[in-house]
C-alpha cells in the first residue's frame, strides 16, 4: 500500500504520525510542534480555498498548508473519505 500523508487525511478522522520528510527548517519546526512519530493528529477543517488545513494534536490547533502537510507521513488507514475527496 502506498504511504499516506497528512494532506490526504479525511475531515474529522485521526491518524498517527510515522515520520516527517525533508531535512530543512520547515521539517524541524513541524517536528518541534509535536508532529513526532506516534503523535495522533486529527484533521478538523480547511480554509476558504481548500488551503490551509486545520489540525488538532496534543490538545491544540495547528494550521498547515497542504504543501507542508504533505511532508508528514501517517500510518495508513483503510477508510476512504466519504465526500471530501481532496
Amino acid at each position: 500500500m502506498p504511504p499516506m500523508y497528512l494532506s490526504e487525511l479525511c475531515r474529522n478522522t485521526a491518524a498517527n504520525v510515522v515520520a516527517v520528510q525533508g531535512a530543512d527548517g520547515v521539517s524541524l519546526r513541524l517536528l518541534e510542534m509535536g508532529l513526532v512519530p506516534g503523535t495522533q493528529v486529527t484533521r478538523v477543517g480547511s480554509g476558504p480555498l481548500g488551503d490551509p488545513l486545520e489540525f488538532e494534536l496534543l490538545g491544540f490547533s495547528l494550521s498547515l498548508r497542504k504543501a507542508e502537510a504533505r511532508r508528514v507521513e501517517l500510518q495508513v488507514m483503510q477508510e476512504v473519505c466519504e465526500k471530501d475527496v481532496s
Binding site: P52, L62, E68
Partner: peptide, 11 residues
Amino acid sequence: ETPVFVMELPS
C-alpha cells in the same frame, strides 16, 4: 517560493 505556513490557532 511561496512561504510556508505553520501556525498555531490559540485558544
